[in-house]
């Protein structure tokens, strides 16, 4: 059984995994990182989105062995203790979540979207989040939250 070394939310793990094990199952069932949920089995919904070496991936479509030597950030690794990441805060301010099941993936995808385009238009946000499905909100407030998050993050960069 292959042994992998993977850093998740700042902690480095060494794990023996079957080659067929999905990254999301490693996260959820081995490492206790249940903040990342699974919403489908065809990589359509995006609920399981995490950052793999800084880029968003759907962790149901990545094998755990592919993450060997990589740095994974999940929704649980955002922000600092006691304060949320600006994007999480923006989702709260704009009421961009209802049941909250798609939210971890939506937030991670939004952060990745801003990496490529720090000041996206509404249209860019809508296109950029196409791979993340939400059944509750109708997306209006999610789009607003990403705009707000972008502004907050832009200011955070300017200030530092």
């Amino acid at each position: 059984m292959p042994r992998i070394t993977v850093t998740v939310d700042g902690v480095t793990y060494e794990e023996d995994v079957e080659p067929r094990v999905l990254l999301v199952h490693l996260l959820r069932e081995r490492l206790g990182k249940t903040g990342t949920p699974v919403g489908c089995d065809t990589s359509n919904c995006g609920a399981c989105t995490v950052l793999l070496d800084g880029k968003s991936v759907k962790s149901c479509s990545v094998l755990a062995v592919q993450a060997d030597g990589c740095d994974v950030v999940t929704i649980e690794g955002l922000g600092t203790s006691g304060s949320m990441h600006p994007m999480q805060q923006a989702f709260h301010e704009e009421h961009a979540l209802q049941c909250g099941y798609c939210t971890p993936g939506m937030v991670m995808a939004a952060i990745d979207l801003l990496r490529e385009n720090p000041d996206p238009s509404e249209e860019t946000i809508r296109q950029g989040l196409e791979g993340n499905l939400c059944r509750c909100t109708g997306y209006c407030n999610i789009v607003r939250a990403v705009r707000r998050g972008a502004q907050e993050m832009g200011q955070a960069v300017t200030r530092s």
Partner: peptide, 19 residues
């Protein structure tokens, strides 16, 4: 009012049955 439910859901401290 902003929701009391959000912080937990936004930071992954969730109690979905499958968790």
């Amino acid at each position: 009012r902003k929701r009391k439910e959000d912080a937990r859901l936004l930071t992954g401290r969730t109690q979905w049955t499958d968790n």
